[in-house]
């Protein structure tokens, strides 16, 4: 049976259709899940898409965190459901406490919209299970607040538990330890700043995001 992946939409999210299109092109069902829904069913994985939820007012992700849908997302994540936050979605996951740390303004204060070279540094997550450690991926970034930061104890735990899943080759935004993406302890919740859905077709200039999306789809199928 085909899996169904929910793509979460807040007011101001703008990458949801790209995410749906990329996932469906890989043969999975994808549907939008709106911020004001208190519950959902029939979804095997979630993608929190990029954009500017609630205008990024206060801090990126700070208001989205209190959306009605967040309780259901947290329950889903706690039960082991695969949840991936892309860009603004990563910021939402950090603000909500589903992932540790925070995303700050980029070093250099520039909005960065460019290809980024990434190295897969862990395959023990729902987003990287089908990739290979050391594999290089070219995937675009598009953010102003993408500089990952956390306290030194958290960083030590992330390293020890093999939870830093993607690192930048040429750290463009000042993230601590070149971090581009991290996972929670169970590996089922992942946040990353780069946009794999924008590297999912030769027409877009790169297909390197597919291995990440396929990993997520594999995890989604495993839960059905």
């Amino acid at each position: 049976m085909a899996a169904t992946i929910g793509v979460v939409v807040y007011p101001g999210t703008n990458c949801e259709h790209d995410a749906v299109l990329a996932l469906e092109s890989l043969g999975v069902r994808a549907e939008l899940l709106f911020h004001d829904q208190r519950s959902f069913s029939g979804l095997d994985a979630l993608v929190i898409a990029g954009g500017f939820a609630h205008g990024d007012y206060l801090r990126p992700g700070a208001i989205a965190r209190f959306s009605p849908v967040m309780g259901a997302i947290e329950d889903f994540a706690r039960r082991g459901g695969p949840v991936v936050g892309i860009c603004n979605g990563f910021q939402v996951l950090c603000e909500s406490g589903l992932l540790p740390g925070a995303l700050q303004k980029n070093r250099g204060l520039r909005f960065l919209c460019q290809d980024s070279q990434l190295r897969v540094t862990s395959t023990s997550s729902v987003l990287t299970s089908q990739a290979t450690v050391g594999e290089l991926l070219s995937i675009p970034i598009n953010h102003f607040s993408g500089s990952y930061t956390c306290d030194i104890d958290t960083l030590r735990i992330l390293r020890e538990q093999d939870r830093i899943v993607l690192r930048y080759v040429d750290n463009p935004n000042g993230s601590i330890d070149d971090i581009a993406g991290i996972a929670n302890e169970m590996g089922n919740v992942v946040g990353l700043m780069p946009h794999p859905e924008r590297a999912s077709s030769a027409l877009l200039g790169s297909v390197d995001g597919i291995v990440l999306l396929r990993s997520l789809i594999t995890s989604a199928m495993a839960t059905t």
């Binding site: 206060l58 801090r59 700070a62 209190f66 950090c94 603000e95 540790p100 740390g101 925070a102 700050q104 930061t149 956390c150 306290d151």
Partner: peptide, 8 residues
């Protein structure tokens, strides 16, 4: 709870 992100 809201105004500050106490992580940073």
């Amino acid at each position: 709870r809201l105004l500050a992100n106490t992580v940073i």
